[in-house]
Simulated scan of single mutants.
Amino acid sequence: MAEIKQGTWVVVTDSEKALFLENQTDGEDPNLDVVRIEEQENPSDREQSANRPGRMQDTGVGQRSALDDTDWHELAKERFAADLSDILYKQAHKGKFSELVLVASPQVLGELRKDMHQEVTNKIVAEVAKTLTNHPIDEIEKLVKAEIA
């Protein structure tokens, strides 16, 4: 059973937005204050693509196949996870937090784990596999406390 001690950071993120929250009280009644917000402009792939997918000759006579175009939207999501991991590393290295709770969808948690530095992973006390970025702070407090209790 993990507890959100005073000073613990709770990072609530999806693939485009991250809320950095710090617990000002104890684990019995967490009071999370916003320390920082990171957001990424990430329009849909269709808006980012410059042209339609290419085509190539197939081995058969008169046959052609479509080529997959780069999914810019998906690339930006992966880049956001890498950027977030970098921010967490810099903050951990500065001693800004001693314990960390990560709250994100399972897919985003997976991306973060790939990029996360050992100095940060050593500080993780709990992970919550839910997307809560659009919830109010008081709702996040209740949900996170319930999940890690």
Rank of each mutant, 00 (worst) to 15 (best):
residue 29 D to M: 14
residue 137 I to Q: 15
residue 99 E to Y: 12
residue 1 M to H: 06
residue 85 S to F: 07
residue 148 I to H: 04
residue 131 T to R: 04
residue 5 K to I: 11
residue 125 V to A: 01
residue 148 I to P: 10
residue 28 E to L: 13
residue 68 D to W: 03
residue 122 N to F: 04
residue 75 L to G: 01
residue 18 A to L: 07
residue 60 G to V: 03
residue 53 P to E: 03
residue 8 T to Y: 08
residue 97 F to I: 02
residue 23 N to S: 13
residue 96 K to T: 04
residue 11 V to P: 12
residue 142 K to G: 03
residue 51 N to F: 14
residue 131 T to A: 04
residue 92 A to I: 00
residue 121 T to W: 11
residue 114 K to L: 06
residue 148 I to K: 09
residue 15 S to T: 11
residue 88 L to Q: 02
residue 13 T to W: 13
residue 17 K to P: 15
residue 132 L to Q: 05
residue 10 V to Y: 09
residue 6 Q to W: 03
residue 91 Q to G: 01
residue 142 K to S: 12
residue 114 K to C: 01
residue 107 Q to P: 02
residue 37 I to D: 11
residue 7 G to F: 05
residue 122 N to P: 01
residue 103 V to L: 08
residue 144 V to G: 08
residue 128 V to E: 12
residue 61 V to A: 08
residue 135 H to L: 15
residue 74 E to W: 06
residue 1 M to V: 07
residue 149 A to H: 11
residue 105 S to M: 02
residue 100 L to A: 08
residue 44 S to R: 07
residue 67 L to R: 02
residue 44 S to D: 08
residue 142 K to N: 08
residue 139 E to S: 13
residue 94 K to C: 00
residue 94 K to R: 09
residue 92 A to L: 00
residue 139 E to L: 06
residue 25 T to S: 15
residue 2 A to T: 14
residue 79 R to F: 05
residue 89 Y to E: 03
residue 43 P to W: 10
residue 109 L to Y: 09
residue 55 R to A: 12
residue 134 N to E: 15
residue 58 D to N: 03
residue 60 G to Y: 03
residue 125 V to G: 01
residue 53 P to I: 06
residue 59 T to R: 11
residue 115 D to C: 09
residue 48 Q to W: 04
residue 141 E to M: 08
residue 143 L to R: 11
residue 83 D to F: 09
residue 80 F to Y: 10
residue 5 K to T: 12
residue 52 R to I: 14
residue 2 A to P: 10
residue 38 E to A: 15
residue 68 D to I: 00
residue 27 G to V: 15
residue 140 I to Y: 12
residue 12 V to C: 11
